[in-house]
Amino acid sequence: MDMSWFLVVSALIFCIGAFGVLTRRNPLVVLLCLELMLNAANLALIAFSRMHGNSDGQIFAIIVMVVAACEVTVGLGVIVAMYRRRVPIDVDELRELQG
């Protein structure tokens, strides 16, 4: 397969994720859309790595997956804590984390 197909799919997934981040108000959906964006970047990294014939992009994609897993862990912890305190879970009205 040509590398352009991988990049087209990556760009499509990234656009779907960016649209979800900009339009949704639920923090869980925003986290899922951020994950879509990170997976699109990983797909592009692996495609370019395959095109150049080295494994640097694949190693960097693994590092991005580790960072994404940490982000989800912390984000879900914050969201669960907010649900327990009965704080409104609307991203536009969220003022709990402001100092």
Rank of each mutant, 00 (worst) to 15 (best):
H52Q: 13
R50C: 11
R95C: 11
I13T: 14
A47Y: 01
P27I: 02
G57Q: 03
I59K: 05
L38I: 08
A81H: 12
A69V: 02
Y83W: 08
G57Y: 08
H52T: 09
V8F: 08
F60T: 15
I59F: 13
D92M: 07
A47E: 00
L94Q: 05
A18E: 05
R95T: 14
G53V: 00
C15H: 06
F48L: 15
Y83N: 12
V64W: 01
A44W: 01
F14D: 12
L36V: 04
V80W: 05
F19M: 15
L45N: 01
L97V: 07
V8Q: 04
V8D: 04
G77A: 15
R84I: 07
L22P: 07
M37Q: 14
F60E: 14
V91R: 10
S4L: 10
T73D: 02
R85P: 04
E35V: 10
V67Q: 00
L12E: 07
R24G: 12
N39C: 13
A47K: 00
V91G: 08
Q98F: 12
L94K: 02
N42H: 04
I62V: 09
S55M: 13
R86F: 09
V21M: 15
I89F: 11
A41K: 06
I59A: 14
G17K: 04
A47V: 00
L43E: 02
E96R: 03
V64T: 07
A41Y: 07
A61P: 00
L36D: 04
L22W: 09
V21L: 15
L31R: 00
F48E: 06
V78P: 06
